[in-house]
Amino acid sequence: MLTFFLLLLLALSISVVLQRRLLNAVILLGVFSLTSSTIYFLAGAPDVAVTEGAIGVAFVTFIYVLALSDQGKLHVITEEIPPFFFQERGEITGIDHEILLKLAEKLNLDLEVEFLSHPETAVRFSGRRGKVLAGAYFSRYCETIDPLTSTTYHRAQLARISAESPSKRTGTISGLNVTGLEEISGDRIRYFDSLNELIEAYNQEKVDSIIADSARLRYALNRINAMRKSSSEITQIGEVEYSFAISREEPDLLDKVNDHLNELESNGQLKEILSRYLR
């Protein structure tokens, strides 16, 4: 009996040291302590067994778990933008999701996705919660929080949907502050908090054109009512580069994301993912 527990102890100690995920290692250390407590009991040391059981199994494990509760998770904040990040029949898919899922697998992390509305993303991201901001993100999209930006994985257009109209009132999403937007379009610009409000305003003819990047524009086009759609035309006014925003507090993660993107680029997987979603 004692022999069995001793050999189990040896195996557990090796597996703790070889673990790559911290939470697993902590739980295994708890089991290691429990096994050693059993050995003390069998070897005629019940005092030590009780103390080790109370401290090693219950307390130490719990304190590690409390301290590590954010470890082992890749917390992603995003807004719902097909085809970059969206839910389909209860399942999360999209270009960004596939890329991040591969990254999470490589880093041995759980992907934790939080869908928020457009203005909320910036607020929550500047707190400690989010590590990655995804969902058709491009630099200068959240100027106020100034995150670290990864390398580009896709280039897209900055475009305008406009209906023929003499009064040049243009709408865009707040935070979508691409350099010289006003110079490019030469219009009066109104900022909206969310894409839905913007589309609503366009449908009700409160604004005559929408400026957005092509991912958001593609989403918007589906929601514009038929009458406005038939009279709309799309013009390109610039270019944006999609990447991931990473919290300033995680410089390590930035390197990992960049390496991951370069690797996907070089083995052609990135192209494959993009072509699957952007037909």
């Binding site: 703790v16 250390l29 030590v48």
Partner: peptide, 29 residues
């Protein structure tokens, strides 16, 4: 954190050594 976990292993093993070094089969508490 892995370093701290390894330190915990050393601690527990030291205690185990002290308990086992005087143990002969059939000892009772």
């Amino acid at each position: 954190i892995m370093k701290l976990l390894s330190l915990s292993i050393i601690n527990t093993s030291t205690i185990l050594f002290f308990v086992m070094v005087v143990y002969t089969p059939g000892d009772r508490a």
